[in-house]
Nucleic acid binder design. Structure first.
Lengths: 179, 179
DNA sequence: GTGTGCATGTAAGGAGTTACATGATTGC
DNA sequence: GCAATCATGTAACTCCTTACATGCACAC
């Protein structure tokens, strides 16, 4: 059975206590979304696959007449997750950013339009920093207080990195406007 | 005719002087690869599509018995590229990083394994900085000397950002080892 | 004559997205 | 009664990747 990053993401979320497909998606939207996007349509087929492969246990857990499944890691699931976390193996990273692509080709623009592009990118970076600090970090810090530090670590890395990029772009703007 | 980022990437590369599909792919591998990956199999169909849509002119330009096409921007192509560059519209960004995903779930590891993970991520960041400065920047700076500044700007942004991340991870390591 | 680089493409498949489809529960 | 939230799934499609397929030119 082949496991992809999305498989480990689901395994990891179950490990952190998310029990239903819905809860996994909710948690992912508030935390891992930014460095590993996952759509809802991926969650249910993948849960079924992981259950079929013996990595997840599944129990019926209805709320009234509304069906619900409660997933938990099996021993094999726990082991697969641990092995992945310890392996440095072939870390797939992929970064796609249309804004940076524009910047690459910015010489085709007038200086004024170049400045406008830099300003837009800077504002976007600032917005990422702000939304991460206001919307993502608080929940991550609540988890941190109970001993789970990964989410807060990652949220701070994101906020601080985009804050750095914001400053970098601000300097680039200044240099472009007044060389 | 619908234009995607990969379309503008090709248009932009032609604008910068890449004439054949091969040359476009070569240039992309050395520069835009890192923030907008594009595989060879995308290039030729997309060139044909852009030619069919009137955004590229195409001439036969054989080298001996080896066929070659020389592409150039039409007025419509130049205009489409310019409009995209000036539009702030819906910048699609997507960041996927398996290493950060591991960090998010790192609480499942022993402290020693957490440290090892942080170290691996730091070394990876350092390698990105180094390879960008050594392999990407020099060519971009040569272009810069002749007035095309985008490539160097983007290469420096990449190198400096990963350098910042390297320092950040180093501090995180220190805090984890000695809180 | 052989390996490296230049050059153009196609076929099949995988990963992930959008949109669709449905329905119960809970709080106002 | 109504809206928001919880909850589970499927279908069609798009985008992109890997692998395949071919062949000339040039330097050594």
């Amino acid at each position: 059975m082949r496991l992809r990053p999305a498989s480990y993401l689901i395994l990891g979320m179950v490990g952190l206590g998310a029990r239903s497909g819905h809860a996994i998606k909710q948690a992912a939207d508030r935390s891992t979304q930014f460095f590993w996007p996952m759509s809802l349509a991926q969650v249910y087929p993948e849960l079924a696959r992981l259950h079929g492969g013996g990595l997840l246990r599944r129990e019926e857990d209805p709320r009234g007449g509304r069906e619900r499944h409660a997933y938990a890691l099996t021993d094999a699931g726990e082991q697969a997750l641990g092995e992945w976390l310890r392996s440095g193996h072939a870390e797939s990273t992929q970064f796609r950013d249309e804004g940076i692509l524009r910047l690459f080709f910015a010489d085709a623009l007038t200086p004024a339009d170049q400045l406008a592009l830099l300003r837009r990118l800077r504002e976007r970076a600032a917005a990422v920093t702000a939304s991460t600090r206001e919307e993502i970090l608080p929940a991550a810090e609540a988890l941190e207080a109970s001993g789970t530090r990964g989410p807060a670590l990652v949220a701070r890395l994101r906020a601080d990195t985009y804050s750095y990029v914001e400053g970098w772009l601000e300097r680039a703007e200044a240099e472009l406007g007044d060389p």
